[in-house]
Design a protein around this nucleic acid. Structure first.
Lengths: 352, 352
DNA sequence: TTGAAAGCGCTAACAG
DNA sequence: CTGTTAGCGCTTTCAA
């Protein structure tokens, strides 16, 4: 029942020594063994716990790091959060989750809120990067690491991936396994990922050897299964009408890919027999799906891990700002793109 | 580039008024319009932002709430986190994520760490509830809301569900749709959910009318797809050997259910034709799976929402401790348990 | 090695 | 309505 929390000064009195000595003894620096013992005992008796806020005010450090995303609940961000937490917690940092989805109007406001000084640093994965955002980050009072496009030339620590190249890998793979007519199922083009992935598909099908394989692009309303289902039907319809039916679909993420697989099912097509499908992000859901989903991993966990290490360097070790690190895309081939099936799911813990 | 952060005293000087007046003017309480205008202007010019730590120390409030779970990354907890964030953020509270998976040795240590006073309250969903945990929560210096078993009789705010009853619902449903021999695929029995769900299956099959339907229980090593796959094979083997093959499997969560569906596939059984399967937790993954998964929702999001409201009442409105609220289980019938298919997936946003 | 004292940035008595 | 002052709990100079 809400015990009255002992303060350092109480411990000092109990031990019969000064406040300063008490602090030093507890911190283990520059105190005689006798003093340490005496203070430790007093602290123990009173069940003393240092008050973080007092500590923070004095030390000008909160031992907190913010992780900001547009939408928690998105599996990709969750993987990042897990990784970030895993590297930060052992260093004594708490992770504060922030989201633009809630109250804060914009990403820019979110960055501005850092001036409140409630965290020592921030990791942010913005949907869009514009000038206002860059300026806000440049002027932020605490170090910020951006996951997404590289802003290293602005002196902003960044960790990025290459989703453009990832889409190219997917296309190459499908051609390599004998597919001849490949459609692209993308999400909204006015998002950073949508735009980058479109570039990938365009690039992959631009070379003479592949141009014939371009079965067209269809844009889903968002990056979800239902949107993917509808858009996949449009994509397949279009190709059928043109008399050049598709034998493969590259989707801009796993959920769209699952939508495509459902669409195939509704049309009586088998996957991968009649239609090969690839996704992107290598999510849990794709791993356990039937057929298991060939997907381009963008190393969400790895990116989170690296971002956390960057922020740690900035905050703990006074590292110079503006470092830039990137995680390459990796194609994970599973059942949905090749007729000879591959090993099975790699699941994860669950339940509550 | 790390501008030097203006303090209240600087604003006061700039406005040529006292520190106190500045604080009041900014806070909007008990200051003349002229004063407010004057101070606002000065604050604006200096780009003033109140320093949260100073504020916290003085007000004895951090405007932070902790959410503690064993394993972030677990979809059920994520749903809770999303809901918690959604109700807390509009009230100006930040959410600090804590996990026993990281450094902290035990749930009890986690609760003890609250004495550091870095949050105003905590929501925790413990794996196991023992005396040490209860004592820790009772003695905690900030209000704690427990998601899981009700501890209201200890004066601890709790939000719970009824997974026992949920399993009963699943069994009833399967019998209602004509299934005659139902196996139970559970997770480890030494966990709170494993234990509760086992009770559910036992209870459901205890009545005379249902006892014949009990096709036995098999325990998976953990609540994952791969563990479920292996255990499902054992469960089905056992029934086959006994000459009474199963026509239905109730799984203790969605991932185990997916394992069961895979096992069925490997044995040439169709779902739901030859084998009906139900899960629990109503996860995204089950919603988009093929066949879509009949699942007992335990209202993870709702429980998170309610827990957040409880903690808000405790922290903001000085509500009396020890309230108790519960969320009933709800069976969501989809394709995996009935031959006539039901409406399609309800997905969610994704990508980064 | 120890103690006294200052002060981090803020709000809330208390006087005027 | 405004200003002066104390003090939240802690760490860290500075002297002794």
């Amino acid at each position: 029942m809400t015990s009255p929390r002992a303060t350092l000064i109480q411990v000092a009195r109990r031990a019969g020594v000064s406040l300063a000595s008490t602090s030093r003894a507890l911190h283990g620096t520059g105190a005689s063994p006798a003093m340490v013992e005496r203070v430790r005992a007093a602290a123990e008796e009173l069940g003393y716990r240092p008050h973080e806020t007092g500590r923070s005010l004095r030390m000008k450090r909160t031992f907190q790091v913010a992780f900001a995303v547009a939408d928690i609940g998105n599996p990709v961000y969750i993987e990042m959060l897990t990784a970030i937490h895993a590297v930060l917690a052992p260093h004594g940092y708490r992770v504060v989750v922030m989201s633009t989805g809630g109250t804060v109007a914009s990403t820019v406001d979110l960055v501005h809120s850092l001036d409140g000084g409630f965290v020592d640093g921030m990791i942010i994965s913005p949907l869009r990067v514009d000038d206002a955002f860059v300026t806000a980050v440049e002027e932020a009072t605490v170090p910020v690491v951006v996951i997404g496009r590289s802003l290293a030339d602005h002196g902003i620590d960044s960790v990025s991936t290459d989703s453009t190249g990832g889409i190219v890998q997917a296309v190459d793979h499908l051609v390599a396994v004998g597919r001849r007519r490949i459609g692209f199922l993308n999400g909204p083009l006015d998002t950073t990922p949508g735009e980058a992935r479109q570039r990938g598909f365009d690039a992959a099908t631009r070379t003479a050897a592949f141009t014939a394989a371009n079965g067209g692009t269809e844009v889903a309303e968002d990056f979800t299964v239902t949107a993917g289902l509808a858009a996949a039907h449009r994509l397949l319809d279009r190709a059928d009408d043109a008399g050049t039916p598709l034998d493969a679909v590259v989707a801009a993420n796993d959920l769209l890919a699952i939508g495509a697989i459902r669409a195939a099912g509704e049309r009586g097509l088998t996957v991968p027999g009649d239609l090969a499908v690839t996704g992107m992000d290598d999510t849990d859901i794709g791993r356990v799906f039937q057929p298991s989903l060939t997907s381009v991993s963008l190393g969400s966990g790895r990116r989170g891990h690296l971002a956390a290490e960057l922020v740690l360097g900035l905050v703990d070790d006074g590292e110079e700002r503006g470092r830039y690190v990137t995680v390459g895309p990796e194609l994970i081939v599973r059942e949905s793109s090749v007729s000879a099936p591959t090993p099975s799911p790699s699941p994860r813990k669950e339940d509550a």
